[in-house]
């Protein structure tokens, strides 16, 4: 199982957290496609709190956090 946590505007029209079958999603890009998140809306992807790319390999039990840019002050 993968735990996927969406942050900020990526939650709008979606859930905050998804639990997905690990077998079906090889890399974070597969998750974005499943959740219909345009890749260009994503600024930061973390796997277990560590920076990852959209093509970094996922494994069962991973926690994937996905953020859009939130840099205002």
């Amino acid at each position: 199982m993968l735990e996927v946590r969406l942050f900020a505007t990526l939650r709008e029209g979606r859930e905050k957290v998804y639990f997905l079958e690990a077998e079906k999603y090889k890399v974070p890009a597969d998750i974005l496609d499943e959740l219909k998140i345009p890749h260009e809306e994503v600024a930061i992807t973390l796997i277990n709190g560590r920076h990852s790319k959209l093509d970094t390999s996922l494994k069962d039990g991973d926690l994937v956090a996905i953020f859009p840019p939130v840099g205002g002050g």
Binding site: R5, F7, A8, R11, K16, L46, G49, R50, H51, A65
Partner: peptide
Amino acid sequence: HYDGLSGSIDEIALQINPNC
């Protein structure tokens, strides 16, 4: 992380990136 629309606060653990 603060979400003013749902009225909730979450926390996510972060790790140092060895290639930072």
